[in-house]
Lab assay of single mutants.
Amino acid sequence: TETRTFDSEEEAKKAQKEAEKQGRTVTITRRDDRWEVRFD
């Protein structure tokens, strides 16, 4: 599991799309003013 933090939802969604192309499961969580993206 890898976790990355982004400043914008746009960036988080971009990372999510990339990871899903690779067949990974992605979870996006809102953390205050940041977006946390978890790759499984």
Rank of each mutant, 00 (worst) to 15 (best):
T29V: 14
D40E: 15
F6W: 02
E11P: 01
T1A: 13
T27N: 05
F6G: 00
T1D: 11
E36Q: 04
K21N: 12
V26I: 05
T1S: 13
T5Q: 08
E18S: 06
V37E: 01
E20H: 08
A15H: 09
D7T: 09
T3C: 14
W35E: 01
K21D: 13
K14S: 11
K14W: 12
Q16A: 15
W35A: 01
R34A: 10
D40A: 12
T3E: 05
T5I: 15
R30S: 04
D32G: 15
A15M: 10
I28N: 01
T27F: 04
E11W: 02
E10Y: 09
E11G: 06
E36K: 02
E10I: 08
F39C: 05
W35Y: 05
T27E: 05
K21M: 13
E18C: 12
V26P: 04
E36N: 02
T25E: 06
R4Q: 11
A12V: 04
A15S: 05
Q16Y: 10
T27Q: 08
A19E: 06
R24Q: 10
G23M: 03
V26D: 00
F39T: 07
E9I: 09
S8F: 04
V26N: 01
R34S: 09
T27G: 02
E9M: 06
E2Q: 12
V37S: 01
E2F: 13
G23T: 02
D33L: 03
E2L: 12
Q22V: 10
T5G: 03
Q22W: 10
R31F: 09
T27M: 04
W35L: 02
A19K: 02
F6M: 02
T27Y: 04
D33G: 15
R30L: 10
D40W: 11
V37C: 04
D7R: 07
R30A: 06
S8R: 05
E18T: 07
D7F: 14
E20C: 10
K21L: 14
T3D: 04
T29E: 07
T29S: 09
F6A: 01
E9R: 03
K17Q: 13
K14D: 11
G23E: 02
T27R: 08
T1I: 13
R4L: 15
Q16F: 12
K13T: 09
R38E: 09
E2P: 07
G23D: 03
D33F: 03
T1H: 13
R30H: 08
T1V: 14
F39L: 09
R4V: 12
I28R: 02
F6D: 00
Q22L: 14
W35V: 01
R38H: 12
T1R: 10
R31S: 06
A15G: 02
D7S: 10
K21Y: 08
A19P: 01
E11H: 03
T25Y: 06
E36V: 11
W35Q: 00
E2N: 11
R38Q: 10
E9S: 03
D33S: 06
E20G: 05
T25Q: 10
G23Q: 03
R31A: 06
K17S: 12
D7I: 07
A15R: 03
A12I: 01
S8P: 00
D32P: 04
T1Q: 12
K14Y: 11
T1K: 09
T25I: 12
T3F: 14
K17I: 14
R24A: 08
R30P: 05
E2H: 12
F6L: 02
E18H: 08
F39K: 02
T5S: 10
T27P: 01
A19W: 12
D40V: 14
D32I: 05
T3R: 08
Q16R: 08
Q16D: 01
D40M: 12
R34W: 10
A12M: 04
T25H: 14
I28W: 00
T29F: 06
K21Q: 13
R30V: 07
K17H: 12
E10P: 04
S8A: 03
E36S: 02
E10A: 11
R38V: 12
A19N: 03
R31W: 05
T29H: 09
E9W: 15
K13R: 13
K13W: 11
E2D: 09
R30W: 09
A19G: 09
T29K: 07
I28V: 10
T1G: 12
E20I: 10
K17N: 10
R31M: 10
T5C: 07
T25A: 10
F39I: 15
K13G: 05
A19V: 04
Q16P: 00
E9F: 15
D32E: 13
T1L: 12
E10C: 12
T25W: 06
K13L: 15
D32Y: 06
E18R: 07
K14Q: 14
R4T: 08
T5H: 09
G23V: 02
E18Q: 09
E10H: 07
R24D: 06
R31N: 08
E20V: 09
T5K: 05
A12F: 02
F6Y: 14
Q22G: 08
E9Q: 05
D32F: 08
F39Y: 13
D40R: 07
D32M: 08
K13V: 14
D7A: 11
R34P: 01
R4G: 04
F39P: 05
E2S: 11
Q22Y: 09
T25N: 09
V37G: 02
F39V: 11
A19Y: 14
E11S: 06
E11V: 03
R4M: 14
T29N: 07
R38S: 12
F6N: 00
E36M: 05
R38G: 05
D40Q: 11
S8D: 06
V26C: 15
D40L: 13
D33T: 05
D7H: 08
D32T: 05
I28P: 00
D32S: 07
S8N: 10
R30E: 04
A19T: 02
G23R: 03
E9V: 06
Q22P: 03
R31L: 11
V37K: 01
D33I: 03
E10T: 05
T25M: 09
E18P: 01
D7K: 08
T3M: 12
D40P: 06
T29R: 09
V37H: 00
T25D: 04
A15V: 11
W35S: 01
T5A: 07
E20A: 11
V37F: 02
T1E: 11
V37Q: 01
R31I: 15
D7Y: 14
D33E: 09
V26M: 02
R4C: 11
K21W: 08
I28E: 00
I28T: 02
V37Y: 01
A15P: 00
D32A: 11
F6I: 01
K13H: 09
T5P: 02
K21A: 15
R24H: 12
A12E: 00
W35N: 01
E10K: 07
R34V: 13
K13F: 14
R24M: 15
E10W: 11
E36A: 02
R34N: 07
A12S: 02
E18L: 10
E20K: 07
D32R: 07
T5L: 15
E11K: 06
R31E: 04
W35R: 00
T25F: 07
I28F: 00
F6E: 00
A15K: 03
T27S: 10
A15E: 06
G23A: 03
D32N: 15
E36R: 02
E10R: 06
D40N: 11
R34D: 05
A12H: 00
R4H: 10
E9N: 02
T27D: 03
F6K: 00
T5E: 08
E36Y: 08
E20W: 11
E10L: 07
T3Y: 13
F39D: 07
R30D: 02
R34E: 06
F6V: 03
V37T: 02
V37M: 05
D32L: 08
D40T: 13
E18Y: 06
E9Y: 15
E2R: 11
Q22R: 10
R38Y: 06
A12N: 00
E20F: 10
T29M: 07
E18W: 08
T27L: 04
D7W: 14
Q22M: 14
G23I: 01
G23N: 04
E20Q: 11
T27V: 11
V26F: 02
Q22N: 12
F6H: 01
T3P: 09
A15F: 15
A15Q: 05
E18I: 09
R30N: 06
T29Y: 06
D32H: 10
E20Y: 08
T1N: 11
Q16M: 15
